[in-house]
Design a protein around this nucleic acid. Sequence first.
DNA 1: GGATAATACGGAGTATCACTCCGCTTCGGC
DNA 2: GCCGAAGCGGAGTGATACTCCGTATTATCC
Lengths: 180, 180
Amino acid sequence: MSTPRRTDARRNRARLVAAAAELFDEVGADATAMNDVARRAGVGPGTLWRHFADKDALIAEVVGDSLDNLAALAADLRAEPRALRRWVVELVRHISRYRGLVDAIAHAGPDGPLGGRCHAVEAATADLVERARAQGEVRADLTATEVVRLAMAVAWVNEAVTPPDTADRLLSLIFEGVDR
Amino acid sequence: MSTPRRTDARRNRARLVAAAAELFDEVGADATAMNDVARRAGVGPGTLWRHFADKDALIAEVVGDSLDNLAALAADLRAEPRALRRWVVELVRHISRYRGLVDAIAHAGPDGPLGGRCHAVEAATADLVERARAQGEVRADLTATEVVRLAMAVAWVNEAVTPPDTADRLLSLIFEGVDR
DNA sequence: GGATAATACGGAGTATCACTCCGCTTCGGC
DNA sequence: GCCGAAGCGGAGTGATACTCCGTATTATCC
C-alpha cells in the first residue's frame, strides 16, 4: 500500500500528497473537503481512499518528512546552550504548519499513522529535557510529556483564537514564568 | 425567542436545556448528535432549532449560568493574596466543564451567543491581572488576553491528550516557569 | 505482440450530522 | 367555543468522510 506496484498508482499517490499539501496550505488540514484533494490531483475519490486509509493517514504522509526533519534537528541542537528552549520553538512551528494539524496530532491514537510519526519527535524531546535538567537549565521535575503538551497547547491556542499572539510570546511566559 | 410566549414553548425550551446539559455531561459538547438532545427532551429536531439559532446558542444557554457565577467569583477573590492564580484555576475548571467546550468557546465569534457570555469573564480577568501587576505578583508586561489564552490552552490540552495531566500541574509550570 | 491475471481507477452511493421548511396542531385572548 | 397567532414534528437538505464494485489499465508470460 505504501509503495504501489503499478506506475500509474505510484504517480497518483504522489499527486494526491502534493494536492493535499497545497490544499492544507490554503485552507488547513481540518475542514478540507477531501474530495477536493482528489479532484485537484485529477483522480476520483475512490483512488484517494485506496491509497490512504483515512484522513489521518493522508495528513501523516503530508507532514511526515517535515516531522522527520524536525526530529533530526534535535541532534544539531543538543550541544547548544538553551537547546530545549530553541527546540520547543521549532516544535511549535512544525505542529502549527497547517491549520488543524495540532488537533489532528492530539486526537491521533499513538499507534495510528500520525501518532507513529510523532514517536521520534517525542524521543528527541525526552533527550533534550534530560540534558536541560542535567545542566540545571530547567526545573528538575520537568518531564518530556509536559513539554510536548505545552507546545501543543501553545500551537493550538495560537490558531484557535483571533488575533493570534506570537508563539514566542506565550513560550516566553511559560519558560520564564508568569509569577514574579 | 429567549422567553417564549406560550407555556408549552417555555416548557420545551427548559427541557431542551436540561437534556443538553445531561448529554454534554455524558458525551461532551463536541460530537453530540443534536437530534439526541431533541429526542431526550421529547421534542422534534425542528423544535430544538426554533429555540436555539445554532449549536453555539445551545451551548451558551447550558453554560451561561456557570459562566456568570464564575465572573461573580472574581469579586470575592479580589482581596485575597495570589488572587489571579486561584482565578485561573477556576477559569480552567469552568471552561473544561464539558468536553469540547473550550473548542466551542475558542471558535465562537466575540459577538455570537457564546462569545457574548464570555465578556464578563474577560473583564474579571482584566481586573485581577491589573491588581496582580500592581502588587508585583506577576510580571509587569502580562496582559489579560494572555492569561485567558493560557487558560484555554491548558484546558484544551488536558482534554485533547490521553492520559490528561492535572491542570494544576501545567498551571504550576506556567506560573512558576519552566526555566531555572 | 497478444492473452491473461493482477492491480488500480472512477464516481455514484452511504452514513452521519447540523440545520431547514412547511403543513398541521395547540394555545390562549376574546 | 372561535380563531388567529404561536409553536410543533419530522421528513428533507447539504456537506463530507468514506465505501463498493463494475470497468479500465498495467505488467507478466509466452
